[in-house]
């Protein structure tokens, strides 16, 4: 019973804060609301018995990613950004109708369906961490490798996007010098 109450508390905090994250105009506040959302969803995961994932969520997302994000947001000049205030009210009616429609469909869909509870782990391994470890390196080994490639891609992509080669370096380009024609350098103007 207490667990049920806790679940609803955490879930409502999650939903409320994610709504606030979208609606607030100040980017720093947005980021902070996102942090709260992460923490409360970690709480939901704890209740579901996934304590390792909950801790990882807090450590990685709240501790590392969001801190970095906040850094970046604070370094950008916010006054400039603020001139692009989102005009949420313009699309209010359309979006609310759509959200209502989807929510109603979802209610219909879930109403008569029996959802499966969380999958039961093997009895031999008791704690989550070793269970995840076992599964990750055996059953999900292929997916694990692909996630690794995905991270490599992210590194290559981000470096390719932000790296700019030194602009005014004075290096001779011999090939270009050899192939230069008169017409490239010399411009004749009729006087």
């Amino acid at each position: 019973m207490l667990l049920n109450y806790l679940f609803f508390i955490f879930a409502s905090i999650t939903v409320g804060c994610s709504l606030m994250m979208i609606l607030t105009k100040n980017p720093v506040k947005c980021a902070l609301f996102l942090v709260v959302t992460f923490i409360s969803s970690a709480g939901v995961w704890l209740l579901a018995g996934a304590e390792f994932l909950a801790l990882v969520l807090i450590l990685v997302y709240v501790g590392a990613v969001m801190t970095m994000f906040l850094f970046v947001v604070m370094m950008i000049n916010i006054d400039q950004v603020e001139s692009f205030k989102p005009k949420i009210w313009r699309y209010f009616l359309v979006s609310m109708t759509m959200i209502g429609g989807i929510a109603y469909c979802m209610y219909l869909a879930i109403k008569e369906t029996q959802l499966v509870g969380r999958t039961v782990l093997d009895r031999e391994v008791i704690d989550n961490v070793s269970a995840i470890g076992m599964k990750l390196y055996t059953e999900f080994g292929y997916s694990f490798v692909i996630s690794g490639i995905l991270l490599l891609t992210a590194i290559v992509a981000s470096i390719a996007l932000v790296y700019r080669a030194p602009q005014n370096r004075k290096v001779q380009n011999v090939k270009e010098q050899m192939q230069t024609k008169k017409s490239d350098r010399l411009k004749l103007i009729d006087l």
């Binding site: 997916s143 692909i146 996630s147 995905l150 891609t153 992210a154 290559v156 992509a157 390719a160």
Partner: peptide, 12 residues
């Protein structure tokens, strides 16, 4: 994972 691995490089 495949969809993400396909799309991320293309965005870049």
């Amino acid at each position: 994972l495949g969809i993400e691995l396909m799309s991320l490089p293309i965005y870049t």
